[in-house]
């Protein structure tokens, strides 16, 4: 093989390698057809009997996908979650970037909180947020305390940032806490 053709072959291989990096993840713009995705079983807290079950596929799809998480970040502003929770630091609503969860910090818990509302002032968004957007927001809320992969958490802000971006937050494993309100009674793990 002449050195020219060898060079050509290595160049072509390099090109193929570069192309392989193009598709980091799948972006799905449309979500599942209506009515097929619903917040799963509602779990309060992270205590389970026996070995922890593997995360349901739903979760991996949304929490492992930078596009979904960044869409969630935009919607968190658009739907005015920031009005009560500030940018996650807490105001009228509790902080979402700390490790304490009153109603559970799993993706399904957060989705359920958004859909159902919570008695001490968290409004219900039932029928107001399409399913895919609901999961995106829930995945973003989890990224606030870095419960998602570093390369998935958003790295920039559209507004003036007071704290380092989600990507640079320390990882804080969630723990149940706060004072669970009456709606959660009898629904324990």
């Amino acid at each position: 093989m002449s050195s020219l053709s060898r060079n050509a072959v290595s160049l072509a291989l390099l090109g193929v390698l570069l192309l392989a990096a193009c598709e980091r993840e799948e972006r799905s713009y449309r979500g599942e057809p209506v009515g097929e995705v619903k917040p799963g079983a509602i779990v309060q807290g992270t205590l389970y009997a026996g070995a922890p079950s593997p995360p349901p596929p739903q979760r991996r799809e949304y929490e492992g996908n930078a596009y979904h998480v960044s869409e969630g970040k935009r919607l968190f502003e658009w739907f005015n979650c920031s009005g009560c929770h500030a940018h996650g630091g807490g105001d009228i609503g509790p902080p979402l970037m700390d490790e304490v969860w009153i109603y559970g910090g799993e993706l399904e818990n957060i989705a359920a909180t958004i859909v159902e509302g919570r008695p001490n002032g968290m409004p219900s968004f039932r029928n107001k947020i399409p399913d895919q957007q609901l999961w995106q927001i829930a995945a973003y809320v989890r990224s606030m305390q870095r419960e998602v992969r570093k390369d998935v958490a958003p790295g920039r802000d559209d507004h003036m940032a007071v704290t380092p971006g989600e990507q640079n937050q320390p990882v804080t494993p969630p723990k149940p806490g706060g004072v669970a309100s009456p709606s959660s009674e009898g629904r324990g793990p």
Binding site: R27, Y29, R30, V34, P130, Q132
Partner: peptide
């Protein structure tokens, strides 16, 4: 289905029956 007409735009498929 806004996502068929302008894929990726910021209006989601709301799923009106």
């Amino acid at each position: 289905d806004p996502q068929r007409i302008k894929p990726g735009n910021h209006m989601p498929l709301v799923g009106v029956p």
